[in-house]
Simulated assay, not measured.
Amino acid sequence: MEKLFGRKLLSDRKDSNSSISSGGYKITEDDIKKVNLYNKGVNKMSEEKFEDAVRCFDLSLRIDPYFVDSLIKKGYAHFHLNQFNIAISVFDQVLEIDINNPEVWNLKGLVFYKSKNYEKAIECCEKAIDINPNDSMGWYNYACYLTLDGRTSQGMEALKKSIELDISNAKKAVKDRDFLGARMEEDYKRIIEVVILESIRQGNDHLGKILWVTGLDRDEIQDATSRLANKGLLIKNVKKSFTGKDEQYELTQELISKIGMEKRSSSKPLESKKEVLFSSQQLKDISNILYESSESSERGDLNLLLQNIDKLLNPILHGTLILDNYFEEHRELRLFYSRLKEKGQEYLNSNKDEISRFMLEMEKKIKG
């Protein structure tokens, strides 16, 4: 969205009670009031107090009925309140002021999407794309709506265009349930391959890590990596770990020369990278910390529990080794630590049994 004072508003009139000048435009006391109300409404939206936000935007619009920024946010607030007809009406008001506003066409399409009126949603997206053909999110939404409307081939073409404009949309697409109907399409499978290659390029070279960062399921990853291996784009290795067998992947040197590789912390080349394993002393230390974590959780000792989890996550101590060998458990430890830091004793009191049980199960797994 453009800055509020970066353009001339339709409400700027010769008879306004001007008192300030900025960039050649006159800013009145009413301008300041409406912007303050607008900002208050945005803050209410961030707090998910959408009815309060609507009241703020309405007060802002009493001062200037053509204040586009407030109209857009008001429509979006009504959308969050599931007041879809009102949201459409508000967005139509904006389009009467600025028919070539791609953001509003996209938002209007989103309302129709939530109402499951995919045909109307597609029409809105087409308007947005016509106005701004380089809007990756417009193409992404267009792909969703086409796929949901049963036009899967067209949807995949739109999705490819979206990914060409922004590679991050590939990762988003493989998690998006809107594309469930396209999962057997060859184009969609190629998008999964792109996501996996990009994940490996960034250093996520284990099956567990790819599961976490992409949201794909194990079968999809193994199917895609097998296809990529057959195409000569990656090498699959199966290695033994404490949790059993683990698949590890390497991009071929030919592919690396074309797309590059994210810099790794190790100065050694990819092919000489060795799996890091625990020493017997480290296993004993980690086991003791996990047991103490379980005990401190049962007692409701927040400070000691946080200290223990920090030892498990700290890369200088045990964090790196746990991440490499127990990726899923490392993720859970991070989540517990974040929630305990944020919500404190209240969260611990409500989840002490779950946390204690997790620590004991992880200790059992490490001991084998």
Rank of each mutant, 00 (worst) to 15 (best):
S16I: 03
S16K: 06
N17G: 09
N17H: 14
N17C: 09
S18N: 09
S18D: 13
S19C: 11
S19D: 13
S22E: 10
S22Y: 13
G23P: 04
G23S: 08
G23W: 08
G24I: 07
G24N: 12
G24W: 14
I27T: 04
T28K: 09
T28F: 09
E29T: 12
D30P: 15
I32A: 07
K33C: 06
K33P: 05
K33H: 11
V35L: 13
V35I: 10
N36W: 12
L37D: 02
L37M: 14
N39L: 15
N39M: 10
N39F: 02
N39G: 03
K40G: 05
V42R: 10
V42Q: 10
N43T: 06
K44W: 05
K44T: 04
K44G: 03
M45K: 14
M45T: 12
S46W: 15
E47N: 13
E48M: 15
E48F: 14
E48D: 10
F50N: 04
E51F: 08
E51P: 15
E51K: 11
E51R: 07
E51A: 09
D52H: 13
D52Q: 10
V54T: 12
V54K: 01
C56S: 14
C56L: 15
F57S: 00
F57R: 01
F57H: 02
D58P: 02
D58C: 07
S60W: 03
R62W: 05
I63P: 09
D64S: 08
D64F: 04
D64T: 04
P65E: 06
Y66H: 07
Y66M: 07
F67E: 00
F67I: 07
L71R: 03
I72W: 02
K74N: 05
K74S: 05
G75F: 03
G75S: 07
A77R: 06
A77L: 12
A77I: 04
H78M: 12
H78N: 09
F79E: 02
F79V: 00
F79D: 00
H80S: 09
N82Y: 11
N82H: 13
N85A: 11
N85Q: 14
N85G: 04
N85P: 00
I86C: 02
I86Y: 04
I88L: 06
I88E: 01
I88W: 00
S89E: 09
V90E: 02
F91D: 02
D92A: 04
V94P: 01
E96C: 13
E96A: 07
I97V: 13
I97L: 11
I97H: 03
